[in-house]
Simulated assay, not measured.
Amino acid sequence: MSKKVIIMHFDLESQAYQAFSEIKKLAVERKIVGEQMAVVTHIEDGVHQFKIDDFIDFTGSNHTSKNSLIGMVIGILGGPLGVLLGWFAGSLIGASQDAKEIQDATSVFEHVTAKIGVGETGLILIANEEDNRPLNQLIMNELGGEISRLDLDDVESEITDAKKVEKEAKDSAKKSWKEKKEEKNTN
């Protein structure tokens, strides 16, 4: 049993909140072993952003949404790297929610933006599932939502890579800016 990052999408915002409540019950009943879960909204107010509307840390570690793995994913999406790499391009074109698009997504970040489109609300859950049927029953059969599961190890690796690239880009930009300023001062 490996840990998964589970992304859930619904047609209605209220369904995401209902799923949030119902998944907490599944965790109490030990039908899933959750670590973290967040209700996430994809907003576009001039700049694409994901906003965490509600968050729970099932582990008792008292993580806040900002210092959680989910918070890191959301932070990278909304940061300069997300903008630079155009992870929101698909949603600007009106990203469809079909399976082919999801399969073609090359990163967890593209996956999240493809699943939770502009103006939509979804859930991100980090959990161990010995049996995926309880969550599938709730999300797909009862609420009519969609589920994608990603390996936690892959997501953590992508976060590490993204942070490294973000730092390199930031350092390069600072160096270039400094060189431009020095060039101006010598002319």
Rank of each mutant, 00 (worst) to 15 (best):
S2K: 15
S2H: 13
I7Q: 04
I7S: 01
H9C: 12
F10Y: 05
F10T: 04
D11A: 06
D11V: 08
L12M: 15
Q15W: 06
A16G: 12
Y17F: 13
Q18A: 07
K25D: 11
A27P: 03
E29N: 06
R30A: 05
K31E: 13
K31V: 04
V33Q: 05
G34C: 05
V40E: 00
T41G: 13
H42C: 01
E44K: 12
G46P: 05
G46W: 04
F50Q: 02
F50P: 01
D54E: 10
F55K: 02
G60R: 04
S61Y: 13
N62C: 08
S65M: 15
S65E: 12
N67T: 08
L69Q: 01
L69V: 03
I70W: 01
V73C: 08
P80N: 15
G82I: 09
G82H: 07
W87M: 10
F88T: 04
S91E: 08
L92H: 14
D98S: 10
K100R: 15
D104A: 15
A105L: 08
T106R: 15
T106K: 15
V108T: 02
T113S: 08
K115D: 04
G117N: 08
V118Q: 11
V118G: 11
V118K: 08
V118E: 06
G119S: 01
G119R: 01
T121Y: 10
G122A: 01
G122L: 02
L123R: 00
D131V: 04
D131C: 06
N132M: 14
R133A: 13
I139D: 00
L143T: 01
I147Y: 01
R149E: 09
R149T: 11
L150D: 10
D151M: 11
D154C: 05
D154L: 10
V155L: 05
I159H: 01
D161F: 13
A162S: 06
K164I: 14
A169I: 10
A169T: 07
A173N: 14
W177D: 15
K178T: 09
E179L: 11
K181G: 13
K181H: 11
E182F: 11
E182L: 12
E183H: 09
E183F: 14
E183G: 07
K184G: 11
N185L: 15
